[in-house]
Simulated scan of single mutants.
Amino acid sequence: MSIVALGTEIVECARVRTLIEQHGERFLTRVYTSAEIRWCQSRKNSTEQFAALWAAKEAVFKAVGLHGRPGAIWTQVEVEFKQGVPKVIPRGTVKDHLTTVGIGQVLLTTAFTRHVATATAIALRA
């Protein structure tokens, strides 16, 4: 498999905390899947986890050519952690887009501190 593109993002954790405090459940369900919300809320540093997932989704959008596109596609990219390793699960129109542009897999890594979260996504050809 060859690399198609790379996407990276850095997010301030305080910004995500403010969005959660101001908009609550409305914000969470617009950006995160129910599985992601449960996972983040079960973690000790839930705000940082939410920020890392936000960064992950933005990095994926950049890597696959969907950054800045209108529409509610946030929940069509789900990040699942298996033994600490993030896995991208595309759904709906995002999955269709990946098929159309010939992307078979998106590799992902995330990291965070108390202040910032970051993610990098690598799109691989099918």
Rank of each mutant, 00 (worst) to 15 (best):
T75N: 09
F27K: 05
V77L: 03
A59T: 08
Q83C: 12
S46I: 02
S34H: 07
T93P: 04
T109S: 15
S34K: 00
T33D: 00
I10A: 11
S2K: 12
N45T: 09
L53S: 01
Q22V: 07
C40W: 00
V64W: 10
Q105K: 15
I103A: 06
A117H: 12
V60T: 06
T93W: 01
T29Q: 12
R26K: 13
A14P: 00
C13H: 01
C13G: 03
K82F: 15
Q49D: 05
R43A: 12
W39E: 07
F61H: 11
L28F: 00
T33F: 03
F27E: 13
I10Y: 01
V106R: 03
V77M: 01
G68P: 03
Q105G: 10
K82C: 11
H97T: 13
I89C: 11
A63C: 12
T100M: 13
W74L: 04
I89Y: 01
G65F: 07
V88Q: 04
R125A: 15
D96A: 15
E12F: 11
Q83L: 13
K57G: 07
T120D: 05
K44L: 08
A51I: 08
G65H: 06
T110Y: 09
C40H: 02
N45S: 13
V77W: 02
N45D: 14
E58M: 10
L66S: 08
E12Q: 14
E12T: 05
E12Y: 03
E78K: 04
I103M: 06
I3M: 10
K62W: 13
N45P: 00
R17F: 01
E48C: 13
A14S: 14
V85Q: 15
V64F: 02
F112A: 12
V16C: 05
H97C: 11
E48N: 14
T120I: 12
W54I: 05
R30P: 02
G71M: 06
L19N: 13
E48W: 01
V85R: 11
I10F: 01
A14N: 07
E80I: 14
T118F: 04
Q22Y: 10
E36F: 04
T109L: 08
Q83K: 15
L6N: 07
G92P: 02
V106S: 08
F50E: 02
Q83Y: 12
V116F: 14
E48R: 08
V77E: 05
K62A: 13
I89L: 10
H115C: 03
L107A: 13
R125P: 04
P90I: 08
T113E: 05
V31M: 07
R125K: 15
A52H: 05
Q22G: 04
V64D: 00
R91W: 10
Q76L: 03
T33H: 06
A56R: 08
A59S: 15
H97E: 06
V101L: 01
S34I: 03
R43T: 00
Q105C: 09
S34T: 12
T120S: 10
T33W: 01
T33Q: 00
Q105E: 10
G24E: 02
K82M: 10
A126M: 06
G102D: 11
T33R: 00
K62H: 14
V101M: 02
H97A: 11
R17G: 06
V77Y: 03
E21N: 11
A121I: 06
A59P: 05
G68R: 07
K44M: 07
A121N: 08
K95E: 15
G7R: 08
